[in-house]
Amino acid sequence: MKIEIATIGFTKSTAEHFFDRLKQAKVRQVMDVRLHNTSQLAGFAKADDLAFFLKEICGANYLHQPLLAPTEEILKGFKQEKGAWEVYQKQFMKLMAARQVEKALTPAMFDHACLLCSEATPHHCHRQLVCTYLNNKWGGALHVTHL
């Protein structure tokens, strides 16, 4: 049985477009995989505000899941120091393995969930790496849709 999971980024998106995508995907829970979920740059996606909006607009729950976030060191090397995506990818996958996230979490926890990060697209974002890592560990149990 496939577990339906989505991913979404909030930058370059209006609040209306962001919440409409979540509603159309029938998301029941947003799993925030950002290291820092209270940034002033986040606008409608700051943790407390987001939890309220998700419940009111989408009837969905909010969960901050830092276990699926990069470390400050890995993030800094990629963002601030303009590191190569390939290096970031290897470091993040190694971190997921060290944390053994596949044992700490279960596929059922991701059913109709949506992984949230700031990046507008999943191509160079760790949220798609999380899905790839877990799918490799869980035998392809996740059916991923990038919103």
Rank of each mutant, 00 (worst) to 15 (best):
A108V: 15
H126D: 03
W138F: 07
T11W: 08
L147H: 10
A97H: 10
L95N: 05
N61E: 12
L115R: 02
K12D: 14
L35D: 04
L142Q: 04
P70G: 07
A42S: 14
A45C: 15
T38A: 06
I57Y: 05
A25D: 01
L116Q: 01
P122L: 03
M96D: 01
S13A: 09
L22W: 02
R127E: 05
V33S: 03
A47R: 15
F53H: 10
Q100I: 10
K79Y: 15
E16F: 00
K23C: 00
S118D: 07
D32E: 07
V87W: 04
P122K: 06
E81R: 14
L22C: 04
G140D: 09
V87T: 15
G9D: 02
K2L: 01
M1A: 11
N37F: 06
A15H: 06
C117E: 02
E102R: 02
Y88K: 10
A60G: 07
S39F: 03
A45W: 06
C125I: 12
H112Y: 06
H143N: 07
A108K: 14
Q40G: 13
A60Y: 02
F92T: 02
T121L: 09
K76R: 13
M96L: 15
K137I: 10
C117S: 12
H64N: 07
H64K: 08
H123V: 13
P107T: 12
A69I: 03
A47I: 06
Y88C: 03
C58P: 08
P122S: 11
C117G: 07
Y88T: 13
L68V: 06
L95C: 06
Q91Y: 01
A98I: 05
Q91D: 11
E73T: 15
H124N: 14
C114M: 01
A6K: 08
K79H: 14
R28Y: 02
E56A: 08
E16K: 11
